[in-house]
């Protein structure tokens, strides 16, 4: 059991530990596999599919698939990059994402991913769905226009906060994040110090009264592309 696992990613040999997912093994080796729903502190669920890699010929989400000895993995191929780009485009057109006046701009993982993929405008027609804004909570705002259904908040509330503030409701294109209260977020036991308030990759969960404290242009992904922290682990 303690024998280490050897696999290759785009031909590069990678060593993994038992119990690691493909993504964890790749991260440690300095190979960045793009991802949106995955978060290091949360149980992976494979919902955004951006981290899809080809494992021995079959598509698999790298965030959930355990690394196994002898796996031959493709990550950085023109075919996969195109599929991933298509998925990112889909997220932009299924919601209402207006980066120019979003507080999350510069810290937004979806926006940063678009920059990394060189997306200037989505190739699909905007759907312009009608979505609600829930500003009922004294300290937190929920803007469903920007939600990408990654369910990080659902998991963080359950796994890190010991609560159950969020859960998916509805299905298909009408699926959305519901809250554990009569009407709105204010009716739940959500507190601004909860980890679920911190993990949103986009501008859906926003804390009130601290907007624009860091000027746009000086934010995380204004300084470096998403994934570059992981790529810094790479051995030459």
């Amino acid at each position: 059991m303690n024998k280490s696992i050897h696999l290759t990613i785009d031909g590069k040999p990678v060593e993994a530990k038992h119990g690691q997912t493909i993504m964890q093994a790749a991260d440690a080796a300095g190979i960045y596999i793009p991802r949106l729903c995955s978060h290091p502190d949360l149980r992976p669920i494979g919902s955004c599919r951006v981290c899809t890699v080809i494992v021995d010929g079959r598509p698999q989400a790298a965030c959930v698939k355990p690394a196994m000895d002898g796996m031959v993995i493709e990550n950085d191929t023109p075919e996969l990059l195109q599929h991933r780009r298509n998925i990112i485009d889909m997220m932009f057109v299924e919601g209402n994402h207006f980066c120019m006046f979003c507080e999350k701009s510069g810290n937004c993982e979806l926006q940063a991913m678009a920059y990394r993929f060189g997306i200037t405008a989505p190739q699909y027609p905007f759907q312009f769905p009608e979505k609600a804004v829930d500003a009922s909570h004294p300290d937190i705002m929920l803007d469903h226009n920007r939600c990408i259904m990654c369910a990080r908040c659902v998991r963080a509330s359950q796994e890190l906060d010991g609560k159950n503030v969020f859960q998916a409701i509805g299905r298909g294109f009408h699926r959305k994040i519901g809250v554990d209260g009569e009407k709105a977020l204010a009716d739940t036991d959500m507190a601004v110090g909860d980890r679920s308030a911190d993990v949103c990759p986009v501008g859906c969960i926003i804390k009130k009264r601290i907007g624009f404290r860091t000027a746009i242009g000086r934010r995380l992904y204004d300084r470096q592309p998403i994934g570059s922290d992981i790529e810094a682990n790479a051995t030459p």
Binding site: G46, S47, C48, R49, V50, N86, I87, M90, M91, V93, E94, Y124, P125, Q127, I148, M149, A168, G170, R171, G172, F173, H174, R175
Partner: peptide, 21 residues
């Protein structure tokens, strides 16, 4: 398929709507 997709993952939730239209 648009009606029956559970909406969990992005390609099925959005892609089928785009295909249909």
């Amino acid at each position: 398929f648009v009606k029956e997709s559970c909406g969990y993952c992005v390609p099925c939730r959005v892609g089928n709507v785009l295909l249909k239209s």
